[in-house]
Design a protein around this nucleic acid. Structure first.
Length: 509
RNA sequence: GCGCCUGUAGCUCAGUGGACAGAGCAGCGGACUUCUAAUCCGCGGGUCGGAGGUUCGAAUCCUCCCAGGCGCACCA
């Protein structure tokens, strides 16, 4: 239970209403201003169980609600909605509570607090990071940031394949270039191969270095890097704990008996080499034995077929599959002038993250890749990206932040404290109510693993702020103290919304 | 054939049970001796893929159908 003191403004209002209704309520913001600042359908929900008509019950709740010091007025509307108008005191308190603790507002709600590992990107180091993999990172890192802000302890990990058939082809391709020959038919091509060929030794560590640099530039920092080859070696320890059988000379996991769609090969018939699945087994044990309460896998939709595999492995090993979570995101389709391009590293005709960042900037790149629902395939016209950059909503949001920073620079010693009797104007009330939504937006983004709610919300905040700014002066106005506090609160919410998706909040533009 | 995802304005997409469905871009018309016009104000634009069902109430939940994307390896 959260204490009443220190609870957010909407929570306090919700509790007052729950008291009036004698049941839990959910408040929502009506689309129509005529329907009040907040509204609840609690009477509609309660009427059947209480043997009353919805309107009758709504009248009663509305009457009780007006007793609250937070409620200016309450009306019954439609089939039985209770519409509420809040007092100017509620607005002042809401602003102060955000402005007073800008670093914490909206966060710290995780219960229980968990140790979480988010494993993401994990692309084979056979080439630079592509825009497709960048979506994995943009999504996974935003989820990680949201979970951390919620109060969890989060680590990011990159898992890479440093052995196996694809890596052999990659190394052979580099070797061929070093000998001045064409890469093999099934090998890799592209300008980056020449750069790797110019360096000495195994190209894999060099490639990984470039990948890490790209991701750091993309503002994703990995706490750890795990190699597939090291995990494979430990397979014999865990084989006895698995449900396995031999068929056609290969060793199979009977995963279909534990929730997977089919059985999987662990050890190949020819050569006796372990498969990628074998490394999966060891890796899962490794993650959980490191003490993570939750191991999150971020995978592209082309891997959705393996979703049940991880849970099956957990069950076979005797772990609760609830510790494992697979997040899927749909793929990125790139077009050039309307024509589809194929994403194949081997053909070398892909768009690399570094080039994408060069073209549209880091902020727009992150914004673009995370502002759409992860269940949605996104289309990016690479040719359009550059010219669209000035119209990208990310600048609209950043500009609101920079404008506020400008006001606060000019404010000097002026105090950001609401004047006791100040009556907020319409644009101010809308902005305050918007800021009051923030904790709910973050909580939902965390729960649904849907960080795209944040950029969409940030646009609304910027929208409300720009409108407020246009209609009212802050400095040397009669409500200067209130408005300065409102500016601080807005700045905090915008900065946090952007930070959670890895976008910077500039002081000047 | 089986599985996952998607179908909302001209385009790109929000909106996972509430009151006449929203934004950005594109189109048209207005507002700058400003705390930054990267802004604001206004206008036009929709059988929410289709058909049934559940509900006081459905873009949202259920069933079927249509269309598209991605999978269904001893590659990763």
């Amino acid at each position: 239970m959260c204490a009443v003191t220190g609870a957010f403004a909407v929570d306090r209002l919700t509790e007052e209403l729950a008291r009036a209704a004698g049941a839990p309520v959910v408040l929502e913001r009506p689309r129509e201003a005529a329907h009040g600042d907040y509204a609840t359908n609690v009477a509609l929900r309660l009427a059947p169980t209480r043997g009353r008509t919805p309107r009758e019950l709504a009248e009663e709740i509305a009457g009780a609600a007006t007793e609250s010091a937070l409620v200016e007025r309450a009306e019954v509307a439609g089939p039985g909605f209770v519409n509420l108008w809040v007092t100017s005191g509620w607005y002042r308190d809401a602003v102060v509570e955000i402005a007073d603790r800008p670093g914490e507002y909206g966060g710290g709600f995780a219960s229980p607090r968990e140790r979480v590992q988010v494993e993401m990107v994990s692309a084979n180091p056979t080439g630079p990071i592509t825009v497709a993999s960048a979506r994995n990172g943009a999504y996974g890192d935003a989820v990680a940031r949201v979970l951390a802000f919620a109060g969890n302890e989060v680590e990011r990990e990159y898992y890479y394949n440093d052995a196996g058939a694809q890596m052999d082809r990659f190394r052979a391709s580099v070797e061929a270039v070093r000998r001045g020959e064409e890469p093999p038919e099934d090998g890799y091509r592209g300008a980056y191969l020449d750069e790797l060929a110019a360096l000495d030794g195994d190209p894999v560590p060099h490639m990984l270095g470039r990948i890490e640099a790209s991701l750091e530039r993309f503002r994703i920092h990995f706490d750890s890097w795990t190699r597939q080859s090291e995990l494979e070696r430990r397979l014999p320890e865990y084989l006895p704990r698995l449900d396995t059988y031999e068929k056609d000379g290969a060793l199979w996991a009977r995963s279909s008996a534990h929730g997977d769609d089919e059985d999987r090969v662990l050890v190949r018939s020819e050569g006796g080499a372990p498969t990628y699945r074998a490394a999966d087994v060891v890796y899962l044990v490794d993650k959980l034995e490191r003490g993570f309460d939750r191991a999150i896998y971020v995978l592209g939709a082309d891997h959705h077929g393996t979703r049940n595999w991880y849970a099956a492995v957990a069950r076979m090993l005797g772990y609760d599959p609830a510790h494992i979570e697979v997040l899927l995101y749909q793929l990125v389709h790139l077009t050039r002038g309307g024509e589809q391009t194929k994403m194949s590293k081997r053909r070398g005709d892909v768009v690399f993250l570094d080039d994408f960042m060069d073209e549209v900037g880091v902020d727009a790149a992150r914004w673009y890749l995370v502002s759409r629902g992860h269940d949605q395939t996104i289309e990016i016209d690479v040719d359009l990206a550059r010219e669209r950059s000035e119209k990208n909503p990310v600048y609209y949001v950043q500009y609101a932040h920079a404008r506020i920073a400008g006001i606060l620079r000019n404010a000097g010693d002026a105090r950001a404290e609401p004047e006791p009797g100040v009556e907020p104007e319409r644009e101010e009330r809308e902005l305050v109510k918007r800021l009051a939504e923030f904790p709910g937006v973050v909580a939902e983004a965390a729960e649904r693993r849907g960080p795209h709610a944040l950029p969409n919300y940030a646009i609304r905040v910027a929208d409300d702020f720009h409108r407020f700014y246009h209609h009212h002066r802050v400095l040397e106005s009669e409500a200067e103290g209130f408005r300065l506090a409102l500016c601080r609160a807005t700045q905090a919410v915008i900065a946090r919304s952007l930070d959670l998706i890895g976008v910077e909040a500039p002081e000047r533009m």
